[in-house]
Design a protein around this nucleic acid. Structure first.
Lengths: 224, 224
DNA sequence: AATATATATCTGATATATCAGTTGCGCAAG
DNA sequence: CTTGCGCAACTGATATATCAGATATATATT
C-alpha cells in the first residue's frame, strides 16, 4: 500500500484515521463494518484492508467474526510507547553527526520560543504544532525512513488518536526546560548528551509518569 | 489478526513466511496471486489479507494493480534495521534493572560456550540457535511486548528471510567477543555499559559493515 | 433455580464475479 | 526508423453473495 490515495482502501484508511483523531471513533468502541460501508457508499473489502493496516499499527483490534474495536490506550501501552520512542529518537540524535548545523539549532530555539509564547497565551494548538516542529528538526535529518515512520506513528497514538484539547501546563513548562537541554546539547555537538536527554528524561516514562497520569487519566476520559 | 491460526489468512501468512524463509519465494520475485491461490486451493481474499500484513512488516511490496514483489534487502535497509534493533535492544538492556539475575548471566555464558563450540565444529545451525537464545535471555525479561516483537520481526528480516546457510567465521568470532562483553556488563549490573555494547558495537552498522558486506553481498545472492 | 442443549442471530471471513489502473503490443503516420 | 495512439492483456481492487465461527437466546432437563 503505497499510500498515494489512488486506492479506495488508502482513502478509507485516511478517513478512519481522521475519525479516530476527531473522536467520532472512540477507544473501546466497536466499528460496524456493514453500517460504515453503507455510510461511505463502499463495500466492506476496502474497509477490511484499511482496518488490517490500522490493527498492525495498533489503533484497532480485529476479533475474527466478532467485531473490530478501537484500541484503548492504557498506562502500560503508554509506557511501552515511551520506551520505544525514547530509544529510537535518542538513536537519531546519537547518530546525527555532521548533518546537524547551527541553523538547525537556531530553528529549534525558535520553536522553543514559540512554545513558550503559546504557553503564555494558553494556546494549546500553537504549543502542539511548535512541539512537533521542534522534534522534527532533528528527525528530518535522519535518513532512516522506517525509524522515523515508526516514531511518528507511535507519537500519533499518544497525541492524535484521539486528539486532545487540554494540557497540563506544569508538564509543558517542564518540557520546555527539557527542550532547552536537548537544543543546547545538540548545538554543542554533544550527541550522546542529547540522546540521553531525549531517551532518559524527555521520553522516560518514569520521569514523566506523574504528568502522564494527570494528562491521560485525570479527566476519566479513558483508562482502567 | 490475533494470529492463532484460526483464520485462513493467518495460516497463509505463516505459509508465506515459511516460503520466504526457505527461499521458494525470493527477493525481487513477483508473486502471482491467482496461481498461488489455485495452488493453495483458496481464493485471493485471504492471500490479500496476508500480503497486506507482510507488506507492513517490510517483506513484500504491493504495487496496486501491477503485482506483489518480494522486497529485496539492500545495504541501506540493513543499515536502517541495525540502527532500530540496536536502539531498541539497547533500551531493553538499559531498563532491565533488578529483573536481571546471576542465573540469567549464567545462561548467557552457557550460550556463549555453545556458540564457541558450534564455531569450532563449523556448525552454523547450532551457532544460529545459540545466538538467538543468548539475546533472548534479556529480551524475554522485557515486558514491552511491542518493542520485543519489533526487534524479532526485524531480526527475522536479516536472518530468516531468506534463511542463509553460510556464515563469516571471522565475524562470528568477533561477535563472540562482543557477546562476552554484553554478558560481563549485565553480570556487573552495568546496564548503561551493556546498552552501549549492544547499540554502539554489536548492532552498530558502522562497526559491522565489513562483515555485513561480505556476508550479504559477497556471494552476489542479492544486492545492487 | 440451575444447567445443558439446541437454535437463532450476529459479524467477520472467504469465494467469485466484475471493475479498473497499468503495461505491453501492434499498427499507422511522419 | 521513430513516435504516437489505440487496443489488448495483465494484475490487483472492489462489490456482492455466501460461509462459518462466536455469542445470545429459548427451551428442555434435572
Amino acid at each position: 500500500m503505497d499510500l498515494d490515495l489512488n486506492t479506495l482502501s488508502s482513502r478509507v484508511y485516511e478517513d478512519l484515521k481522521r475519525r479516530l483523531n476527531e473522536g467520532s471513533l472512540r477507544a473501546g468502541q466497536f466499528i460496524d463494518l456493514s453500517a460504515l460501508g453503507r455510510e461511505l457508499g463502499m463495500s466492506r473489502t476496502p474497509l477490511r484492508d484499511a482496518l488490517i493496516r490500522l490493527e498492525l499499527e495498533g489503533f484497532v483490534v480485529i476479533y475474527p467474526r466478532r467485531g473490530v474495536m478501537v484500541r484503548p490506550l492504557d498506562l502500560s501501552d503508554i509506557r511501552d510507547i515511551y520506551q520505544i520512542v525514547g530509544a529510537l529518537e535518542g538513536a537519531v540524535a546519537l547518530k546525527i553527526g555532521n548533518r546537524f548545523q547551527d541553523e538547525d539549532a537556531d530553528r529549534m530555539r525558535s520553536f522553543i520560543d514559540a512554545m513558550r509564547a503559546a504557553l503564555d497565551a494558553d494556546d494549546f494548538d500553537a504549543y502542539y504544532v511548535a512541539n512537533l516542529a521542534f522534534h522534527d528538526v532533528y528527525l528530518d535529518l535522519s535518513d532512516n525512513g522506517d525509524l522515523v515512520r515508526t516514531v511518528r506513528t507511535l507519537k500519533g497514538r499518544l497525541y492524535d488518536f484521539p486528539r486532545r484539547t487540554g494540557y497540563v501546563k506544569e508538564w509543558e513548562r517542564a518540557s520546555l526546560v527539557e527542550h532547552g537541554e536537548i537544543e543546547a546539547r545538540l548545538r554543542a555537538r554533544d550527541y550522546a548528551g542529547a540522546a540521553s536527554a531525549i531517551r532518559d528524561v524527555h521520553w522516560s516514562y518514569e520521569v514523566q509518569e506523574r504528568f502522564i497520569r494527570s494528562y491521560y487519566f485525570a479527566t476519566g476520559s479513558q483508562g482502567r
